[in-house]
């Protein structure tokens, strides 16, 4: 179960009439319930209660960092983001001695290589989804990243 699958489960629970959802995969059981959920017979108040995450035998779900995903403010500040296409390690340059692909303030063109995400010696060049100005770089070089994790906050230019 990866981060994006977990997010999908949360979305399903939020949009459903269920108060609780339990999934078991590879010996790990994850139970989600809506905080303050009341018995199913009671009227459902959609979106009124945040979803609380519990994992049964691990204190937290495991991800590539070994850290639990935490709800936090939008680090992209509302800007659109370029996201990681896979789980792996984020690199800002093609090699430790090379210049970085992009810096804050750089203008990037669509499909321009902006970083590499590596997993198991697969070097995946990530291209810009659209032309824009890089406003924020949201992860550190050589940091582990999840599938779908925002990497760059980018102001779109036409």
């Amino acid at each position: 179960m990866d981060f994006s699958e977990l997010k999908e489960l949360i979305r399903i629970l939020e949009q459903s009439g269920l108060s609780e959802l339990e999934v078991e995969e590879n010996g790990r059981r994850i139970r989600l319930h809506k905080a303050g959920a009341v018995p199913a017979a009671a009227p459902l108040i959609a979106h009124a209660a945040p979803v609380v995450l519990e994992a049964s035998h691990a204190p937290r779900p495991l991800n590539a960092h070994g850290h639990a995903p935490a709800a936090e403010e939008d680090p992209a500040g509302g800007l659109p983001t370029f996201d990681s296409p896979m789980v792996g390690t984020f690199y800002r340059s093609p090699s430790p001695e090379s210049d970085v692909f992009v810096k804050v303030g750089d203008r990037v063109e669509e499909n321009q290589t902006i970083c590499i995400v590596e997993a198991m010696k697969l070097m995946n060049e990530v291209g810009a989804k659209f032309a824009g100005i890089v406003e924020k770089i949201l992860v550190e070089n050589a940091q582990a990243v999840e599938f779908g994790q925002p990497l760059f906050a980018v102001r779109r230019v036409d």
């Binding site: 590879n26 991800n63 590539a64 789980v87 390690t89």
Partner: peptide, 20 residues
Amino acid sequence: EGRGALVVDAADGRHLIFSG
């Protein structure tokens, strides 16, 4: 595991290793 990463039992818990 399924994607090929190592699941490692370390003193501070389980880790997934994708590269290194």
